[in-house]
Lab assay of single mutants.
Amino acid sequence: KLPPGWEKRMFRSNGTVYYFNHITNASQFERPSG
């Protein structure tokens, strides 16, 4: 389970998975720990 605010997303163009935090508007490719 991801830390609060984080969700898994995917770029439609190339299928790359990334993680987005809707609380802080942060995004990263590494899976957030917590």
Rank of each mutant, 00 (worst) to 15 (best):
K1P: 14
K1Y: 12
K1N: 14
K1F: 10
K1Q: 12
K1V: 14
K1T: 13
L2E: 15
L2M: 06
L2K: 15
L2G: 03
L2C: 10
L2S: 02
L2W: 03
L2H: 00
L2F: 03
L2T: 02
P3F: 01
P3G: 04
P3L: 04
P3H: 00
P3K: 01
P3N: 00
P3Q: 02
P3Y: 02
P3A: 06
P3W: 03
P4T: 06
P4L: 07
P4Y: 11
P4W: 08
P4E: 09
P4N: 07
P4K: 06
P4G: 03
P4V: 08
P4M: 08
G5Q: 02
G5W: 05
G5Y: 05
G5L: 02
G5E: 06
G5P: 07
G5F: 06
W6V: 01
W6S: 02
W6M: 00
W6H: 03
W6A: 01
W6G: 00
W6P: 01
W6L: 01
W6Y: 01
E7W: 05
E7K: 06
E7Q: 09
E7F: 05
E7P: 01
E7R: 06
E7N: 03
K8Q: 12
K8L: 10
K8Y: 05
K8E: 11
K8W: 02
K8I: 13
K8V: 15
K8N: 02
K8S: 06
K8A: 11
K8R: 12
R9I: 07
R9V: 07
R9W: 00
R9Y: 06
R9L: 08
R9E: 06
R9T: 03
R9H: 10
R9Q: 04
M10V: 13
M10S: 11
M10Y: 14
M10N: 09
M10H: 11
M10D: 05
M10I: 15
M10P: 05
F11K: 13
F11W: 09
F11L: 15
F11D: 15
F11Q: 13
F11E: 15
F11G: 13
F11Y: 13
F11P: 04
R12Y: 11
R12F: 08
R12G: 15
R12W: 09
R12V: 13
R12M: 13
R12T: 15
R12N: 14
R12A: 15
R12I: 13
S13P: 12
S13Y: 06
S13T: 11
S13M: 04
S13R: 09
S13E: 14
S13H: 12
S13Q: 12
S13K: 11
S13I: 09
N14Q: 08
N14W: 04
N14I: 06
N14H: 08
N14D: 13
N14G: 09
N14A: 09
N14R: 06
N14K: 08
G15V: 00
G15L: 07
G15R: 04
G15Y: 00
G15E: 10
G15I: 02
G15N: 08
G15Q: 07
G15P: 00
G15K: 05
T16A: 12
T16N: 09
T16F: 07
T16W: 13
T16P: 10
T16Y: 12
T16V: 14
T16Q: 14
V17N: 08
V17I: 13
V17F: 13
V17W: 06
V17H: 10
V17M: 07
V17E: 13
V17K: 07
V17Q: 06
Y18L: 03
Y18I: 08
Y18D: 10
Y18K: 03
Y18A: 01
Y18N: 03
Y18M: 04
Y18Q: 05
Y18H: 05
Y18W: 06
Y19L: 00
Y19S: 00
Y19V: 00
Y19W: 10
Y19Q: 00
Y19N: 00
Y19E: 03
Y19I: 00
Y19G: 00
F20K: 01
F20H: 11
F20E: 09
F20Q: 04
F20A: 04
F20Y: 14
F20L: 02
F20W: 10
F20R: 00
N21A: 01
N21Q: 05
N21G: 03
N21R: 00
N21F: 06
N21H: 05
N21I: 09
N21D: 07
N21K: 00
N21E: 06
N21T: 02
N21V: 04
N21S: 05
N21P: 02
H22W: 14
H22I: 15
H22F: 14
H22N: 13
H22Q: 12
H22D: 07
H22Y: 15
H22M: 12
H22G: 09
H22E: 08
I23K: 07
I23R: 04
I23Y: 12
I23A: 08
I23V: 10
I23M: 09
I23F: 13
I23G: 04
I23Q: 04
T24I: 03
T24D: 07
T24G: 02
T24H: 06
N25K: 13
N25Y: 07
N25E: 07
N25A: 07
N25M: 11
N25L: 12
N25F: 07
N25T: 05
N25P: 01
A26I: 15
A26F: 05
A26H: 12
A26Y: 04
A26Q: 15
A26T: 14
A26R: 11
A26M: 14
A26W: 05
A26D: 11
A26E: 15
S27E: 15
S27F: 15
S27L: 14
S27M: 15
S27V: 15
S27Q: 09
S27I: 15
S27Y: 13
Q28W: 05
Q28A: 06
Q28E: 03
Q28D: 00
Q28H: 04
Q28T: 08
Q28I: 06
Q28S: 07
F29I: 13
F29Y: 10
F29K: 10
F29N: 07
F29W: 10
F29E: 08
F29G: 04
F29Q: 07
F29M: 10
F29S: 08
E30R: 01
E30Q: 07
E30W: 05
E30L: 07
E30T: 07
R31V: 10
R31H: 10
R31S: 04
R31Y: 11
R31P: 11
R31W: 10
R31T: 08
R31G: 03
R31M: 10
P32I: 01
P32S: 02
P32Q: 03
P32W: 00
P32Y: 03
P32V: 00
P32M: 01
P32N: 02
P32K: 01
P32G: 03
S33I: 12
S33E: 11
S33N: 11
S33R: 09
S33K: 10
S33V: 13
S33W: 11
S33G: 13
S33T: 13
S33P: 12
S33A: 11
G34N: 12
G34W: 15
G34V: 11
G34D: 13
G34F: 14
G34M: 13
G34I: 12
G34Y: 14
G34A: 12
